[in-house]
Simulated assay, not measured.
Amino acid sequence: MKIYFANGLFSQADAEFNARVVAKLRAMYPLVEVYLPQENASINDKNAYADSLMIAKADTDKVLASDLLIAVLDGPTIDNGVASEIGVAYQAHIPILGLYTDSRRLGATNQQKLDALQEVAENQFHYLNLYTTGLIKLNGKILTSVDDLLAAVREYDDEARL
Rank of each mutant, 00 (worst) to 15 (best):
D67S: 04
M28Q: 14
A89F: 11
I94H: 01
I3Y: 03
A160P: 00
G98Q: 05
A41F: 00
L135P: 01
D67G: 09
Q38R: 07
T101V: 15
Y4L: 08
S103H: 06
G98T: 08
A56E: 06
G140M: 10
A71G: 01
L117W: 08
T101Q: 10
I86V: 04
K24T: 12
Q118P: 00
P30Y: 02
L130R: 00
A71C: 07
E155F: 06
R20T: 14
A83W: 05
L149Q: 12
I3G: 06
A71N: 10
N40S: 12
G8N: 02
I43K: 04
V146T: 14
D102Q: 14
S52V: 06
A108P: 03
A116W: 13
L117K: 05
A41L: 05
Y90H: 09
V63N: 06
A58P: 03
I142V: 15
T132F: 09
S145F: 02
P37V: 08
A6W: 04
G87F: 04
E85N: 07
D157A: 03
E33R: 15
V22H: 09
V146M: 13
A92L: 13
E85C: 08
L138V: 04
P37G: 07
P76W: 13
Q118M: 15
N40C: 12
V32L: 11
V153F: 03
D148S: 13
V120P: 11
A6E: 07
L150Q: 03
L149K: 10
L128M: 13
I136G: 01
G134D: 02
A116V: 08
V120M: 08
Y4D: 04
V32W: 02
E159A: 02
A6F: 05
T109G: 03
L143C: 12
L9Y: 09
S42E: 14
M54I: 00
L143P: 12
V88H: 02
D102W: 04
I43Y: 01
F17W: 12
D67K: 14
K46S: 14
N18V: 11
L135S: 02
I3L: 10
Q111L: 15
D51E: 02
A41E: 00
N123H: 05
D148R: 09
K2E: 13
H126R: 10
T144Q: 12
R161L: 01
N7S: 13
T132R: 11
L99R: 08
T133V: 11
E122N: 12
L99K: 05
L36K: 15
D158A: 14
K57T: 01
L97M: 10
D74P: 15
M1I: 06
Y156M: 00
R105C: 14
A116L: 10
A152N: 07
L68R: 07
A65N: 03
G98D: 03
V34E: 05
E122R: 15
